[in-house]
Each structure stands twice: as structure tokens, then as C-alpha cells.
């Protein structure tokens, strides 16, 4: 049994890493907003979904233009990523302005419910537009980066099987890591990033430092939503077919990744996302084996969530979260 698990390990790692990277970038959006407003922005999954739709629409439009096919696909992807990130970033900023800012001082439950409302609105608006324009809300984008690649792990050791993947896997992975590293740099090394951390800690005192708190919160929403939208594009590239409801379960998983890593903690969200992706892929590959066929691969979520529950029982603040104790 162990041998079989080892055999599939390279493939599990590669698939898990790509899925985990997607979770991680989306989780960043949850954790940033939570860090600064203590709000769980349930609409974030829908921003991701909106990004997937905007990206796919752009791909279809661009691919329809003859000259684009002579441009390397990677440039098209970069263009689509940037445009989509800007649009979803603005969307997130707008949502904050209209739906959350008026409730800034309301009890925490109220903006939470508003966020759920916003997520329903986004789902239905996108479904409406997609259905109106194409007669079907399930949309398939152009297939990109479909070349198969194989890494010959078997030449390293005969225990392993070879791992194979589409080029798109690599694209997803590399882009997601670039996004994460840039964000980490931004938060920890730049003035506005530091201001964001300051506002997250203490809004009043931050404003005494002449930091414009509303602007800082807007920037946070912009960046979080831009990351979410860009990941939506990656998701569309990876899986091809999207519908207006993909944001719910993925958003849920990303939220859980954020909690797993310690909500409010940027690096925690990254770690949590990647861990959750790996666990899920591991379960999906080995669950049948491990349970002697009682639970199939479709129980992968149960496995992943059980791990989450265990982590939360023994370390409720998350893997990288710090227990809140402050010197007064």
C-alpha cells in the first residue's frame, strides 16, 4: 500500500501544488480583508468567479481577432490577467464603498450578512449576463497551453511513477507564486503595505499618523480582489469550463485555507492554501487505497476538512496565527 502511495506521490505533489496555489491566492483576499476590517468577505469567492468570466470573455474576444493567433499565447494571458485584475480590483473597491463602508461601525454580523447578499447578487448578475449573451450560463473558453509535459520521476528512483501535466499547470503555478511573492513584498517592504498593517492594528492611531484610513482600506480591497480575479483567470485557463457557481465552493475552501494558516496572517494564508491543495489531492489519489475501498476519491473534501478540524482543535489560532495576548 505504501508503495502504491509513493508511486503516485509525484503526480499528487504536482496537482496538489497547482490547486493549492489557487487556494492560496484566493485565501489572501479573505485574510487581507479580515486583517483590516475583521470582516469575512463572503463575496470574495464571487469576485474570483467574476474574474474567471471576465477573463474567459476576453480570451474569446481576443482569439476571435485574427492577428492575436500570431502573438505568443503567454502575452495574451498576461494582458488578460492584467485587465481582469484591474476590473475585479475596481469591483471589489466598489463593493466596499457601497456595501461595507456605510456599515463600518455596525455590529460585525451585519456586514457579514451583507457580504453574503453581495455574493448572491454577483452570482445572479453574472448568470444573467452570461445567459443573455450566449444562451447558456456554462461557458467554455478557448483551450490554451494544452501541451502535455512529463517529468520522469521514475529515472530518479524506480519507486516513483512519472508525473505528467499540461503546460497550463505550470502557468498557474508560476503566476500564483509570482502574485504571492509580490504581495508579500508589498505588505512587508513598502510604505503603503506598512500602512495597511498599521490600519489593521489600530485604525484610530493610524489616522493620527496622517494615514488616510478609507484610502488604505480601498487599496486593500483593490489588491485582494485583483488577486482573486486573476486567480479566476488562471482557474479558467486550467479547467476550461466555468459557471457562475464555481465561486462558492472554491471560495469556501480558500476561506478555510485562510483559517488553517491563521486568518489575518498573509503568509499563513499562503501556507494554508498550499497545504489544503496537497491534502485534497493526496486524499483524492489515495483514499480508496487507505480505506480499502470504503471511501472513494469523492470523499477528498471530508479528508481535508477533518485535517482542518484537527488543526483547529489543537491550534485554534491557525498554523501561523499568534494567540492574541497584548501588553496593556
Amino acid at each position: 500500500m505504501l508503495l502504491e502511495m509513493l508511486q503516485s506521490l509525484p503526480q499528487v505533489l504536482i496537482d496538489g501544488l497547482a490547486l493549492g496555489a489557487v487556494y492560496a491566492v484566493v485565501a489572501l483576499g479573505y485574510t487581507m480583508v479580515y486583517g483590516i476590517l475583521q470582516l469575512i468577505n463572503f463575496a470574495h469567492g464571487e469576485i474570483f468567479m467574476t474574474g474567471a468570466f471576465i477573463g474567459t470573455t476576453f480570451f474569446i474576444l481576443l482569439m476571435g481577432m485574427g492577428w492575436v493567433s500570431s502573438v505568443p499565447q503567454i502575452f495574451v494571458l498576461i494582458l488578460v490577467l492584467i485587465v481582469t485584475a484591474c476590473l475585479t480590483g475596481l469591483l471589489g473597491m466598489g463593493i466596499e464603498r457601497v456595501a461595507y463602508r456605510p456599515l463600518r461601525n455596525a455590529p460585525r454580523l451585519i456586514p457579514l450578512i451583507t457580504a453574503i447578499g453581495i455574493s448572491f447578487i454577483l452570482q445572479d448578475v453574472i448568470r444573467f449576463i452570461a445567459e443573455l449573451s450566449s444562451g447558456n450560463y456554462i461557458v467554455t473558453g478557448p483551450s490554451l497551453f494544452t501541451d502535455q509535459m512529463t517529468i520522469s520521476f521514475s529515472s530518479l528512483s524506480s519507486i516513483f511513477n512519472d508525473a505528467s501535466f499540461k503546460t497550463s499547470f505550470l502557468i498557474v503555478l508560476v503566476t500564483a507564486f509570482i502574485l504571492m511573492i509580490s504581495l508579500d513584498y508589498f505588505i512587508n517592504r513598502t510604505k503603503w503595505g506598512t500602512a495597511m498593517r498599521a490600519v489593521a492594528l489600530d485604525r484610530e492611531t493610524a489616522s493620527l499618523m496622517s494615514i488616510n484610513v478609507n484610502k488604505t482600506i480601498s487599496i486593500t480591497f483593490f489588491i485582494g480582489s485583483a488577486l482573486g480575479g486573476a486567480t479566476g483567470v488562471l482557474f479558467a485557463v486550467q479547467y476550461g469550463t466555468i459557471d457562475p457557481f464555481i465561486g462558492f465552493i472554491l471560495g469556501m475552501k480558500a476561506f478555510i485555507a485562510a483559517v488553517l494558516g491563521g486568518i489575518g496572517n498573509i503568509r499563513g494564508a499562503m501556507l494554508g492554501g498550499i497545504l489544503l491543495g496537497l491534502l485534497e489531492m493526496f486524499a483524492s489519489a489515495n483514499l480508496t487505497l487507505l480505506t480499502g475501498g470504503i471511501f472513494g476519491a469523492e470523499y477528498k473534501d471530508v479528508f481535508a476538512f477533518s485535517i482542518l478540524i484537527l488543526v483547529l482543535i489543537f491550534k485554534p489560532e491557525g498554523l501561523l496565527g499568534k494567540p492574541t495576548a497584548e501588553k496593556v
Binding site: T194, A195, R197, A198, L201, A206, M209, S210, I211, E326
Partner: peptide, 22 residues
């Protein structure tokens, strides 16, 4: 402000830099 209200998880340098934010 009362109670000092320094940014506890920011370094001393970052705290000072926030003072000069503008």
C-alpha cells in the same frame, strides 16, 4: 494617544516611519 497605542507587531523602525507617513 492615551495608552501609547504603538503598532505592536510593527518594528520600532516601522512605527517611526508611520509617523513620517506624509
Amino acid at each position: 494617544p492615551e495608552g501609547r497605542k504603538i503598532f505592536s507587531t510593527l518594528t520600532v523602525k516601522e512605527n517611526l516611519l508611520m509617523g513620517a507617513f506624509s
